[in-house]
Design a binder for these strands. Sequence first.
DNA 1: TGGGGTCTTGTAATCGATTTCAGTACGGCA
DNA 2: TGCCGTACTGAAATCGATTACAAGACCCCA
Lengths: 343, 343
Amino acid sequence: MPHRSATIQDVARVARVSTATVSRALSNPDLLADGTREAVFEAIQQTGYRVNQAARNLRMRRAGAVLVLVPDLGKPFYSKILAGVSEGFASTDYAVLIADTESRPLQDGELAGYFIDGRIDGVISLDGGLSRQALDECERQGLGERIVFLCEWVDGTDFPAIRSDNGEGARLAIRHLHGLGHRKIAHATGPEGNVLTTARRDAMVSERAVLDLPAREEWIIRGDFSVESGHAAARKILAMSERPTAVFCSADTVAFGLISGLQAGGLSVPEDISVVGFDDIDMSQYYIPALTTIHQDRHLLGFRAAERLLERLGPSPSSVADAADDLIDVELVVRSSTAPPKV
Amino acid sequence: MPHRSATIQDVARVARVSTATVSRALSNPDLLADGTREAVFEAIQQTGYRVNQAARNLRMRRAGAVLVLVPDLGKPFYSKILAGVSEGFASTDYAVLIADTESRPLQDGELAGYFIDGRIDGVISLDGGLSRQALDECERQGLGERIVFLCEWVDGTDFPAIRSDNGEGARLAIRHLHGLGHRKIAHATGPEGNVLTTARRDAMVSERAVLDLPAREEWIIRGDFSVESGHAAARKILAMSERPTAVFCSADTVAFGLISGLQAGGLSVPEDISVVGFDDIDMSQYYIPALTTIHQDRHLLGFRAAERLLERLGPSPSSVADAADDLIDVELVVRSSTAPPKV
DNA sequence: TGGGGTCTTGTAATCGATTTCAGTACGGCA
DNA sequence: TGCCGTACTGAAATCGATTACAAGACCCCA
């Protein structure tokens, strides 16, 4: 049985003031006379008082928590992002709840339900696959202000979305390969229907056109962001009559699987085929060959999303934040998985 | 402004009963007459009522949340564990809070403070480096029952600790290498002072003695669990006059760095040196060479920890749970990073 | 017919904070 | 001296649930 801790009543008794005064001492100290304030703080010290969050939240009609929706906690890509989010809320009194939408998808009305329950004050969703219905329901309840997307987003909605400049990333990758002399460039995509898949593929395709490079249907290899799908892409490439000399992968993990698969099929990277990844996860610089990739500042992404949500939860409803701030720069990191094509 | 949602009062009014009856309908339905119960559920439907957690928690003197302390969210090792924990709590009404103890270490009294605040009901700590003081303070407040360790633990305390059989893992690794014909086996350790470092190193050293293998001081290479430390270990090995023919690494990430470093130094794996990892993170099977390693069931570890904490938070204080259940089996996974030594 | 038991339900206290409203004290000014 | 504004503090309502206690209805059996 936890030792029953001091309440505001106890403090008031010790300081010989009312509970209202104690409350004010904490939230609005300059309202009090100097002596009173000191007496209260003294009493707080003595009793070891800490304000009870449940009571405070009940009275203030807030939950004191935000929810982060992660498509798959098991993916290393998310870890640093979460660290960033968590840091963004560290100096506030919001708790950070994390839910994995893959291991347990949200039920109908569950998201809005969390708000209504008083469980959460806001949401950061890393999952762009949230159902339209769930979002609409939140909007209908006037909760639209409390939702921020991160990395992914939902087309056709106008929730703020902190994200990397995916298009620019794809263009950097293609230009880099083009610069090395590659012309036959393939793309291993993410899962169909994912906004990142679309953004990266579209930019890749259009940049390829801009540079006047050849395009073949089979060079767009559908997959998902998994290592396995990279492995599968390798098998497809090995079976092609007209092989590309370079592959731009939609994720580093895909690149790892791809390289591993190519190697198993007797092709070496970058000698026979160059590979570019996307994300720059920790492993990438130590992979053999070290992976050329598009760096995303994952920590910053998380941190910014936290800031953005905090703004929106704050007292002033319309913030001055610039939507342009929501696009985070990416960077090409050249390592050893790319080289000029064989002549 | 979120649409003010229905309260228990509203439901009571609609159903023409008292709030007590509504409350009972939810928590103890068979106490009510059939007709009443139906009327209440009908009213709940009509009003869209959802119980307010803050109010409920306040009244029931509970927080409705558990905290998971993660040493470094950025490490891919933890992701699946968190998914397991999260799944373990999915069917309960506990929220799962996650805090990164590296990016923001716990302050004095902060942990006990969370309990007293009514912010959390329990803790799962993946961090074995929690200060003794913080733990003692919790014990003193009678909160000892509410703490469970996971993966790591703190020597000399008797909190339950769900963990892999680290000793067995180390022995499996050494026996595997011994079986291949290796005699000169080195070990790249984790950070000094970490319980896992100690457990794995001690078991490695004693198994090496059991098998009557040579031991050299420099073959115990101190590091931490990072890729970088594996890289550094490679440099040390390259500089040795008497090189080992195999290295048992304290983590897969260390193995990756090691292999990368050896390769950079002109030694290839497994031809020149065999490498065994520990953890079997997702990447390991796709690394080149695919990594021979000790598999930890990370999802199960997380899930078990959740179960264990739930038991302890439940109404019956002394659970029947067997402490033996807390040790999770590990498995040797043989891939391509190990081979017989060159003759 | 009356006492005792079971079923069902309601009244009201309670959890621990915040905040509105009102009151007191005091100083300044006419 | 009397009125008013300012500074400070307290009493009490409130947030939305849970639950101890009590009371009414009904049945059974002596």
